[in-house]
Amino acid sequence: MMSDFLSVSNLSRSYGEFHAVNDISFSAKQGEFIALLGPSGCGKSTTLKMIAGLELPTAGKIEINGSDVVNTPPGKRNLSMVFQSYALFPHMSVKENILFGLKARKVQKQERNKRLNEAVEMVDLGPHINKKPGQLSGGQCQRVALARTIVSNAPLCLMDEPLSNLDTKLRAEMRSEIRSLQRKLGLTVVYVTHDQIEAMSMADSIILLNEGRIEQASTPEAFYEHPETPFVAKFIGHPPMNLIAFDDLLVGVRPEHIGLVEQGGLAVSVVECDYQGSETILTTSFKESTIRLSLAGKRVLAPGAAVNIQWVPENEHHFSSSSGQRIERTNSVMNS
């Protein structure tokens, strides 16, 4: 088995009484793409900054390629970083921006130019290298930031919400571009995002953080099919998973797994019917819970109408309502 390229153990960072990052551990193999996912303020950016060395941990260990780097300055950790704001130096041309790190590290001119040409070709920036960042579009700025990573030859790349300043269409394009670049270069990537789609579509494994702690760490498939806590269940999927209280159980069912039936199942009443083109989101109420359904095509149901809904037991997730932990399936509530 390959050893871990990056390993973070018992990492904590607190500001006074506030624990931004609270005792988290994870690791990444060489060439692995890890997403740190979570809502804002969950500690994902702080974790990334600690790996980069821009922020000092209050406790814990960070190892890169087998050596402890906690006391190593950022420039000596042999990693590159892509920032949310791209962090392009506005007073330098694209070319100078890309070469900045190589000059700081006193790489020979010939070698510098060789790497520059390779990188510029890879991210398709050829005609722009003498422009200033202010003259570039958001997507082009993003490419310059990537080119900076490429020329550095660093095996580890940290990305801090790199796509959040782009529009939806460009974002989808850049997702696959970053992913293919990462594969081509064999980079180990730690990718911070609050966007579940980015995490699900790009990462080999996802670490979901909540209030400074790891909520779940697993593959994207496991996140969808096997959420460990109600928080995970609600975070992944759109619209989020329904959580319905049955006695001491929280039962989770995804809206796309629920169908309408003529009779049987659960009797609920319609609250709202929201047509979105390829599907209709139906909001219903059942006792004190709200249950959403995602139905294909256009459906029109009047508010207040009584309907019956049903799902197959395999798509049911059970959580203990006291501890919040996942319980392996007992009996389906559909049968009771």
Binding site: K49, A52, G53, L54, P73, P74, G75, K76, R77, L79, S80, M81, F83, Q84, S85, A87, F89, F100, G101, A104, R105, R148, S152
Partner: peptide, 19 residues
């Protein structure tokens, strides 16, 4: 972030101020 980027790229403190 500009300072952070410079530091990750291996620039010293005085270098960061200067560049």
């Amino acid at each position: 972030d500009l300072e952070n980027a410079a530091r990750v790229e291996g620039c010293s403190l005085l270098g960061t101020i200067w560049h």
